[in-house]
Design a protein around this nucleic acid. Structure first.
Lengths: 214, 214
DNA sequence: TCGTTAATGCACTATCTAGTTACTTATGTC
DNA sequence: GACATAAGTAACTAGATAGTGCATTAACGA
């Protein structure tokens, strides 16, 4: 019989549904920001009912907060896995610069989410204890690296770990987040493979010149 | 007599009204982004009627485009006034780095507007012939500076003007646009006068080490 | 003084959107 | 196998929000 395949009763799976919602929300928030994101769009893309979003996450803002927390968790976890403590200082620094660039490149939502959160003065991140802890660990890791390099005489002394972290992030982040206006202003395709390679090389040079002893 | 000052007939002044609208729009767009901005709020803050906005600017998007164009015009005009061509190359470069930082600091709306425009893939800026021309002049100015410094032997050779421009902007822009999440992650007040001074010094060092001959 | 044009104001609408109410259906446990 | 609980759905609402229709009034030249 060719009877209409009657919307199958659909197996129930709370975990899977939450994951689908989070994934859809990440995309939508990244694309349109917190304000521009549409709850209905998230529901549709998650193949869930809008009611489910409120069932699991209470409100659009709490959902955003959760998406943001997960995004920070992901990058901080990946950074820890670099295991910089067991590398030669120069190599470790190069690894960090390259990792940061690659991560932004492969996870463009991260950048847009952070932008959106800053537009809202970080009011969601403030509430997250988890992010707090992860950040601490991250800064410490870079501080140890600087200390080690200094002791070995390959890094200059007196470099502040926070300023360095900000700078490493900045030179990759800015290039990528402003790629659309950048393409117009500089009349150059900033996203071709060659352009991306060139930028990574330039960034590497910038940081090594800044940090390494003369 | 204490008669109610009967809403005075209000002198008509097309120019002044447009300027008030543009100024209010800049604030509102910077605060909430294109999507989050409310036309009613702009009207109220401009002490104009909402009808006026549509009378002069046709739509919310066209108003945004105009605000954005004006913002780019302003910074590019200010840059030209630096008159870098008549300064010693090193001093000129320092001047540019300091100017860029100061401009972002004193015009925080500029940053937020650019962020918002990039969220929308620069579709408004694409239409602007003016911005196109101004950008060209700006890149040329820095290219001349690099050339001059190279000839005098104070700058390294082979530095790309576009990459340098992007980097100078990045290290200031990122710090300021992400100051809210940054404050949380680094557990440090990034906006105190001392912190701002320190950042400018760090940025100056970053750029000079990158550009100057060893 | 008159008439044309441009500036201004008010009230309205069509549409959208976060969040909810009230319901149905699957799942696993005793 | 029935009961309790959690997963899922559809239709609705109250409030916003971009954009308009239309009437009114100032400015200014003839």
């Amino acid at each position: 019989m060719t009877s209409a395949p009657k919307a199958k009763p659909k197996a129930r799976d709370a975990d899977a549904t939450q994951k689908r919602i989070l994934s859809a929300a990440k995309k939508e928030f990244a694309k349109s920001g917190l304000g521009g994101a549409r709850v209905d769009v998230i529901a549709e893309r998650a193949k869930a009912n809008k009611r489910m979003i409120y069932h699991y996450f209470n409100s659009k803002e709490e959902l955003f907060q959760r998406v943001l927390e997960d995004a920070y968790s992901d990058i901080r976890t990946a950074e820890q896995k670099l295991d910089l403590d067991h590398m030669d200082p120069k190599a470790a620094l190069e690894t960090l610069v390259r990792f940061t660039w690659d991560y932004y490149l492969k996870n463009p939502e991260f950048i847009t989410l952070v932008n959106s959160e800053n537009l809202h003065k970080a009011k969601h991140l403030k509430k997250s204890e988890l992010v707090h802890q992860l950040s601490q660990r991250f800064v410490d890791m870079v501080a140890r690296l600087l200390e080690r390099g200094e002791k070995e005489g390959v890094f200059r002394s007196g470099i502040d770990a926070v300023q360095l972290n900000i700078t490493i992030a900045a030179i990759g982040y800015y290039y990528l987040t402003n790629r659309f206006t950048g393409t117009i202003i500089y009349e150059r395709d900033l996203m071709s493979p060659e352009a991306l390679d060139e930028r990574l090389r330039f960034n590497m040079e910038t940081i090594m010149r800044l940090v390494c002893a003369d």
